[in-house]
């Protein structure tokens, strides 16, 4: 819109006041995510990757620095329904069918009835759940539930998709499959994706850019542009480029630790 990035943060700081004293969750974070990028945030627990995503989503308030989402404050962006958020667990409402779960944001946002039906169908087709709309969440596997929750985030037209370890609780085979689907989805929709993970192969496989983070205080220690092509069959994970990239991420994570643990 303004030519600015989808997400622009500069010297972002967030300190939680807890009973055990202040916790520096984010320290001096500078970041610019361009529209259409797929950016992964990777790091050990406590590195602030989820907190950063929550700040972008206006679920947490930074205590310092500035951040804009689509050129607006996160609060305005949230009111403008600028992003879809996918949580660690699918979090489908058990009393609603899959269809009605995907329809939930459309109801809240006041889409007309006819449009809701079309959007629900389109979103379910995008995640290959077209035939499961009338089922209840408990009738679906964990992977299918998580796909439904992605459909829920895609149902309305947000150009930004925020995903917080969406596949963390799933087994490796399902995860591979969903990673492939997510890449295809990204290629097809051209949405900007911010993706939090603690899996190195997942981050390297999916991303156009990898942000390596480190804890205490939570900060960015490395930003890696991926040289991998847009077209990525699963086999690319055995290629030399992929392994080099994974090594660099691993070393980044280790160096982030080394400075602190002594």
């Amino acid at each position: 819109m303004t030519g600015a990035g989808a997400v622009v943060a500069s010297s972002l700081d967030l300190v939680f006041q807890t009973r055990d004293g202040p916790v520096h969750a984010l320290s001096d974070v500078d970041l610019e995510v361009a529209p259409g990028e797929f950016v992964s945030f990777i790091g050990p627990s406590g590195c602030g990757k989820t907190t950063l995503l929550r700040v972008i989503a206006d679920l947490e308030q930074p205590t310092g620095g500035t951040i804009t989402v689509n050129g607006m404050t996160p609060g305005q962006a949230r009111l403008n329904r600028a992003y879809g958020y996918v949580f660690q667990a699918a979090g489908l409402y058990p009393w609603r069918t899959i269809e009605k779960n995907v329809r939930l944001p459309l109801e809240v946002m006041g889409y007309p009835a006819q449009e809701r039906i079309e959007r629900v169908r389109r979103a379910l087709d995008l995640v290959d759940l077209g035939d499961f709309g009338r089922m209840f969440p408990w009738q679906l596997s964990g992977g299918m539930q998580q796909r439904a929750s992605i459909a829920r985030a895609l149902a309305f037209d947000a150009d930004l998709l925020l995903m917080d370890e969406p596949f963390g609780a799933l087994d490796e085979i399902v995860r591979d499959h969903l990673n492939e689907q997510l890449l295809a989805l990204h290629a097809r929709t051209g949405k900007t994706v911010c993706f939090v993970t603690h899996s190195i192969p997942e981050a390297v496989y999916l991303s156009t850019r990898i942000v390596v983070m480190s804890p205490r205080p939570g900060r960015i220690i490395d930003v890696i542009e991926s040289p991998l092509p847009a077209e990525r069959p699963l086999g690319i994970r055995e290629s030399a480029t992929f392994l080099e990239l994974a090594t660099r991420v691993r070393e980044g994570l280790r160096s982030g630790h080394a400075g602190r643990d002594e």
Partner: peptide
């Protein structure tokens, strides 16, 4: 999480 979801909407 369920409350956060509503907040994101």
């Amino acid at each position: 999480m369920q409350l956060d979801l509503m907040r994101t909407y």
